[in-house]
Structures are given as structure tokens and as C-alpha cells.
């Protein structure tokens, strides 16, 4: 048996009057139980579309056109919509950036928390209500017994996000997808929510896909990291390996452009010139070529693949700068297989 979640060669397209645009292309990664992967990238990198593709929640004009998503040895792309609905909220759960838009304003917190449990777990109304209070207490909501009777607008942003987490966890999902869960929150509240997510994931062995643009959050939460750019994963490695030895020029540029608290006082921030190419206008060859300080002729002509660069651990990079290392790894594997 492989990993809990296997994403292979995922390609997602959006149709419009002008034709179709590929938002996510050749995205692959694995995730085990209890493990957290961070998908990090800027707007338009395809990190949210990747998550929605896994959840089967793409908007009507979006479609997965290639690749495979296996979850618990079931191919999610082959499931019917009713089967997917049965999975969502049960073994697959998702939390979003702005909890207010995903909470129903006219239902009480208690109603919304028990809905999934009544549907998926077959609990009695009474048991579900009791469990709702327990869940709120678990995620650190004070006065839980009162809060279940309140409506979402009465809660602060941090409290709403706690309720969303409680809802997502109500049916003990095997996989939790969290899309920028703390981006709309203040930094002291973010610290509370991140600590909570970490504690809960460790306790329940839930696998987590955490989507963020914040490298600080990545450093705090991830076991492994996939850096995305213009719809593709450009680098994937263990979190320590990635921060200690970033390899892709985009990752390197991203790390140098954060004005972080430990930085040298007078050092000028390095910025990546230009901006992300538009989906409809992807250059042939490497998608980062126009912004890359190390661009070579080859980068304009050929498309690099995401390949292993390390013989000792996992460190995948989509860049021709490392074709030497990638060839060495390939040779070694071939030799190992031959002998």
C-alpha cells in the first residue's frame, strides 16, 4: 500500500469564451497519515486550484483533464458526485481563508456543527449536540455551551476560524485541506490557530495539505514543502532541506525577498523582477525564464521536468541548472536496478 494521498501528473483547465487555460499542470506529490505538506506560492501559482481539484470542488468551468488522484487506494477522479459528497466532510475536509463566507449566517453554530455528524456518523441529535460542545472546547472556544446557540456574526474572526476547524474535524477526516486558514487573522491569533492545528493533527494523525503564501507559516508547520509557480511544482523537499538548501532560482528569490525579523538591518531586499506570466500567455520552455537571474538558452527552448537532485534524500527540482545532479541520480538508480 502506498501513501494515503497520491497526486500524479494533475492537470486542471478552465474553460472560457476565449478557449481553455491550464491553471495546474504536471502536479505530483504524496502525503502520508499524520504528515503536513505545505503548498507555497504566490497568487496564480495554482495552489488553491490543486486543493479544489483534490476535493472535487472546482467551479463549473474547471475540469481535471489529466493525471490521477488516489486517496486511500481509491481513484477520486473516478467517483461520482454523490460518492464524492459522501467523502467530503467525512474523510476529506476543507477549511477556507474567510470562515464567514463558508459559515451559514442564518444557522446557529450548533446546527452547522452537528449537520455533518448527523449526515455522516449517524449520531442521534442529542449525541451530536454533546459532541459539538466537546469539539468547540477542543479547539479552545470559551463558553462553548453558549456559543452553540449563537450565530456566526457574533464571533470574532479567530473564533470563526476555530469553529470552522471544529466543523472540519467533526467527522475525524483522514485528510484536511486548509487554504490560507490564517491569512485573514491577526498575527497573535494566527499563532494560536497554528498551534491548535499542529496539536490536533498530531493527536489524530490527520494528513494536512496547508496552502499558504507565507514562508513563515511554512517554516512553522510543514513536514515537507512543494513550491508552486505558474501552475507547476518547481521544487519539493523536506522543510529543513528546503530552507537550508533552496535550489530552484524562484525559491531562492522568494526567500531573499521576505523582509523578516532576523534580517540584516541595512541589507537591501532582493526582489524578483517582473511578474507571473498570465495563464493564457505561458512561455514555451521554463515558465520562470523571464524572471530568472540564471536563465540559459535551453530554458527558452525546452520544458524542464521535476526531477530528483539528491542521492541521499528527497529533493525534487524543476530546473536545468541541476541537470548534472539529476543525471547522476538517474545513473545511480539505473545501476542499482541493474545489479
Amino acid at each position: 500500500m502506498g501513501s494515503l494521498l497520491q497526486v500524479r501528473g494533475l492537470r486542471t483547465e478552465f474553460g472560457s469564451d476565449a478557449g481553455s487555460a491550464v491553471a495546474v499542470d504536471e502536479v505530483s506529490f504524496d502525503l502520508d497519515r499524520g504528515e503536513t505538506i505545505c503548498l507555497v506560492g504566490e497568487s496564480g501559482s495554482g495552489k488553491s486550484v490543486t486543493a479544489l481539484s483534490i476535493m472535487g470542488l472546482l467551479p463549473r468551468n474547471g475540469r481535471v483533464t489529466d493525471g490521477e488522484i488516489r486517496f486511500d487506494d481509491v481513484s477520486l477522479l473516478d467517483l461520482s458526485e454523490p460518492e464524492m459528497r459522501e467523502n467530503r466532510g467525512n474523510s476529506l475536509a476543507m477549511i477556507f481563508q474567510e470562515p464567514m463566507t463558508s459559515l451559514n449566517p442564518v444557522l446557529t453554530i450548533g446546527d452547522q456543527l452537528t449537520e455533518g455528524m448527523l449526515l455522516h456518523l449517524g449520531l442521534s441529535r442529542q449525541d451530536a449536540a454533546k459532541r459539538a460542545v466537546e469539539l468547540l472546547e477542543l479547539v479552545g472556544v470559551p463558553r462553548a455551551e453558549q456559543i452553540v446557540r449563537d450565530y456566526p456574526h457574533r464571533l470574532s474572526g479567530g473564533m470563526r476560524q476555530r469553529v470552522m476547524i471544529a466543523m472540519a474535524l467533526s467527522c475525524s477526516p483522514a485528510l484536511l485541506v486548509a487554504d490560507e486558514p490564517t491569512t485573514a487573522l491577526d498575527v497573535t491569533i494566527q499563532a494560536q490557530i497554528l498551534a491548535l492545528m499542529k496539536r490536533l493533527a498530531a493527536a489524530s494523525q490527520t494528513a494536512t495539505i496547508l496552502i499558504t503564501h507565507d514562508l513563515g507559516v511554512v517554516a512553522e508547520m510543514a513536514d515537507k514543502v512543494a513550491v508552486m509557480y505558474a501552475g507547476q511544482v518547481v521544487e519539493e523537499a523536506d522543510v529543513f532541506e528546503l530552507f537550508d538548501h533552496p535550489r530552484h532560482p524562484y525559491t531562492v528569490g522568494l526567500m531573499k525577498s521576505i523582509p523578516h525579523l532576523g534580517a540584516d538591518d541595512d541589507a537591501r531586499l532582493e526582489s524578483i523582477p517582473g511578474s507571473v506570466p498570465a495563464l493564457a500567455n505561458m512561455p514555451s520552455g521554463c515558465r520562470f525564464q523571464d524572471r530568472c537571474p540564471s536563465v540559459m538558452d535551453r530554458c527558452r527552448a525546452e520544458r524542464p521536468d521535476l526531477l530528483e537532485t539528491s542521492t541521499t534524500g528527497k529533493h525534487l527540482v524543476r530546473c536545468f541548472l541541476y541537470s548534472g545532479e539529476q543525471a547522476a541520480v538517474r545513473d545511480e538508480t539505473t545501476t542499482a536496478v541493474a545489479s
Binding site: 497573535t188 499563532a191 517554516a219
Partner: peptide, 15 residues
């Protein structure tokens, strides 16, 4: 102090 502490450092070694 709490504001500075809450800020997640982009360095996994500081976890």
C-alpha cells in the same frame, strides 16, 4: 514582545 513572538520566522530551526 508577544507581537514579535507571534510572528512566524521563516526558519524551521526556530520552531
Amino acid at each position: 514582545e508577544t507581537l514579535l513572538d507571534a510572528y512566524p520566522a521563516p526558519n524551521p530551526h526556530q520552531r
